[in-house]
Design a protein around this nucleic acid. Structure first.
Lengths: 145, 145
DNA sequence: AAAGTTGTAATTTAATTTATTTCAACTTTC
DNA sequence: GAAAGTTGAAATAAATTAAATTACAACTTT
């Protein structure tokens, strides 16, 4: 199992908006070309980023723009925006444990706190990186090529 | 997306082996009844736990047994045993970034270290809990019921 | 008005996860 | 040593999810 590629796609998109935004319109079609991801999927991701207040887009006009500074956007914000993990959490519980079995009716509760802690540790790590850092690293590599 | 329920199923299985192992044979059929998971899936999970050196099973004889002490098995060991996350890692990269685009050909590399760190943080948290703790909590809840 | 773009719904395709079917090999017990 | 019960494993099916595709109305700019 893997976290949906919409997450890495979203980071790619935001990086492109910052790096190419000055010289050209960053349309879903352009982003589709850079990512190799279908333009409709790009528009869906942009739509989620817009709902999260991370980008601005407008019907007709073409070109996505950042709605906040890169150093105010963490990888966690993007992860949340594109809804990588739903309310059920990162772990999938087997759904029909037997309530007549003392283990079956309690195991979920016993594990829950510990699994949530693991998920939190993971998410907290994502909060440590801002898009500003990602873009800075990308610009550095490009300039050295 | 969610981590396969084989993981929580495996923890359930190990808990049952410890709690019921003294009074009865813990067969795949019994475990299927307690978990609500198909008996063949149970046998597959047991097979993975056996490969990891966590349980012993034998053809014909019936009944799984722990191959090591509960306090020597962490949630991480179980997670690894049932192969929740493959070599590709927890995050799924979009697979066809455009090598002609300076962002496209570098973004993977830029993100990789940070995403690996998040995965590591998550896995390290799983290493903090042993099955001994899970079973102790389970026994406590059962005794208070 | 024309060209290009976004937003969104509906559908299809592909991949993955879980369940099911089947049966040979093995153990224990009577 | 035959019967009953079990594991191991392969093959297949069903269900779920992710990603791509098709289609088109609404909007902006020129």
């Amino acid at each position: 199992m893997q976290i949906t590629s919409k997450f890495t796609t979203a980071v790619h998109i935001l990086t492109c908006i910052d790096i190419f935004g000055d010289e050209r319109r960053v349309t879903s079609d352009f982003l589709s070309g850079s990512t190799g991801v279908n333009a409709v999927i790009i528009r869906n991701v942009l739509s989620q980023l817009r709902t999260a207040g991370i980008v601005n887009t407008r019907q007709g006009s073409g070109g996505a723009h950042l709605a906040k500074a890169l150093d105010e956007i963490t990888l966690y914000d993007v992860y949340k925006a594109v809804d990588c993990v739903d309310d059920e959490g990162l772990f999938h519980f087997h759904e029909n444990p037997n309530a007549d079995c003392p283990v079956g009716r309690n195991i979920h509760r016993v594990m829950d706190g510990r699994l949530t802690a693991a998920q939190k540790a993971f998410e907290n790590e994502l909060k440590k990186t801002t898009l500003a850092q990602v873009v800075a690293d990308t610009r550095k590599i490009i300039s050295e090529e």
